[in-house]
């Protein structure tokens, strides 16, 4: 008697291939759609890029080969190292600036704005610039910062400088300014998100125990916000390292980062050499992310 429903159940189950399946199996099946998408649109293209990076190129075509010419030229040129250094420099400076600004904004939103309505309103306010394309937001800096632009006329008009300031535009300064402007929100969002989840009683407890504001910040809030900071950092660093258009426009084509090296190669139909550069860049970015992930276990913290 006790067995019978079991048998029926088992047979039924086998028919639907449901409960009879192991957890591992259903896990694989559930993740299969995403895996397939990633395999087709991420893994395959990357494999392609790696393969083509060993190919050769003529003026107007590429031909299959297995040669190290592209890497040899890339790794033996001092320009490559300068450009990688410049890329990392942009990434670090932008990261520091966006982190400071982003953290401050998120902190203000999360802990100084009392009502949720206002939090939402102010948060949406932060996203308004994103309603226009980022190219437009970037290019609008150009007339502002130019030799005869608003910034310089204001500075000269107020008597702060005699001559227009040249380094405002087409310089590292303008490039980083644009980066910070474009990417700070990517820092604000995840940090704000993790801050909102901090249990307020922890802050009260810190206060009750006599911690100063600064101590609360460094001992309670920052450690608890680490996952948000890390996610924001990954966004900003990868975006900056992969960018080419901001560097091209804001430096007036005078400065280069790895992205521009790749885009120049593509423009000149040198796909294999572009692929080789892309592979080296990919490895660099992965290393940076690996290092970042050493600091915090995102899976655990989320």
């Amino acid at each position: 008697m006790a067995n019978q429903p079991n048998v029926t159940f088992g047979a039924l189950g086998a028919g639907r291939a449901g409960p009879g399946m192991s957890d591992a199996m259903s896990g694989w099946l559930l993740s299969a759609p995403l895996m397939l998408v990633l395999a087709f649109f991420l893994i395959l293209p990357i494999i392609m890029i790696v393969i083509v990076s060993f190919w050769g190129a003529t003026e107007f075509s590429i031909y299959p080969a297995f040669q190290f010419d592209n890497y040899e030229f890339l790794l033996s040129s001092p320009v490559t190292y300068q450009v990688f250094l410049a890329t990392i420099k942009y990434a670090i400076i932008t990261w520091v600036c966006t982190l400071l600004i982003g953290f401050t904004i998120a902190y203000f939103l999360a802990f100084h704005i009392r009502t949720q309505t206002w939090q939402i309103i102010l948060f949406l306010l932060c996203t308004i610039p994103f309603w226009t394309s980022n190219i437009i937001r970037m290019i609008s800096w150009i007339p502002f910062l130019g030799r005869n632009g608003l910034a310089n006329s204001a500075l000269v008009g107020m008597g702060i400088v005699d001559q227009p300031v040249e380094w405002l535009l087409y310089s590292d300064f303008s490039v980083i300014l644009a980066f910070v402007h474009l990417y700070t929100l990517f820092m604000v969002v995840p940090i704000f998100n993790t801050m909102m989840r901090i249990d307020r009683s922890l802050i009260e407890a810190a206060y009750d125990n006599g911690a100063t504001g600064l101590q609360t910040l460094t001992n309670v809030i920052i450690p608890l916000t680490k996952p948000g900071i890390m996610i924001g950092s990954i966004f900003v660093v990868t975006l900056v390292m992969g960018d080419f258009i901001t560097v091209r426009f804001m430096s007036g084509s005078q400065k280069a980062n790895v992205g521009r090296l790749i885009s120049n190669d593509i423009a000149l139909l040198q796909y294999p050499s572009a692929c080789a550069t892309a592979v080296v860049l990919l490895v660099t970015v992965l290393l940076v992310i690996a290092v970042l992930l050493r600091f915090v276990d995102i899976r655990k913290e989320l």
């Binding site: 190129a57 040129s77 300068q82 450009v83 084509s253 280069a256 120049n264 050499s273």
Partner: peptide
């Protein structure tokens, strides 16, 4: 013009832009 040494020129040009 496009030169016989165009590929070499292109690489050098790339270096000039990056320099």
């Amino acid at each position: 013009a496009v030169m016989d040494e165009n590929q070499y020129m292109v690489r050098k040009w790339n270096e000039f832009i990056a320099a």
